[in-house]
Design a protein around this nucleic acid. Structure first.
Length: 109
DNA sequence: TTAGTGACAGGCA
DNA sequence: CTGCCTGCCACTA
């Protein structure tokens, strides 16, 4: 397991309900600022191996851009269930829902 | 091992 | 706002 992969999984699992993060954000926190695509790939691959809240990860515009239509519907449903408003374009308001990681208070996770 | 791919991001017209 | 091109790097076969 590459460090980037492990970090990505941890970060995604740390996103609280009711908030979302962009692929770029996750990638940056995971150690690769340009690893947005890898985050996406990891989700695509790891979501079937791990139970990740991948629905809380959206693209730079806050849109659900997942290729699998069924997945997009599921993602939207789960986001709304968490209190996030999703518009007709499958977009959320990043100004309200984008989660920003705060400084660690100690220990590692 | 190598080659190809991709749930993206960012810059430019 | 939309569309096109390039970079990026882990994953799969």
């Amino acid at each position: 397991m590459k460090p980037f992969t492990a970090e990505t999984i941890k970060i995604i699992k740390q996103i609280p309900a009711g908030y979302v993060m962009t692929y770029g954000q996750v990638a940056e926190y995971a150690g690769s600022k340009r690893g947005a695509r890898q985050v996406a790939r990891i989700l695509h691959s790891m979501s079937k191996k791990y139970e990740l809240p991948w629905h809380r990860v959206v693209n730079r515009s806050g849109e659900i851009v997942i290729q699998a239509e069924a997945g997009a519907i599921t993602q939207r449903y789960m986001l709304e269930d968490e209190g996030i408003e999703v518009d007709a374009n499958g977009r959320v308001d990043l100004k309200k829902y984008q989660y920003k990681r705060e400084k660690r208070h100690g220990g590692d996770e």
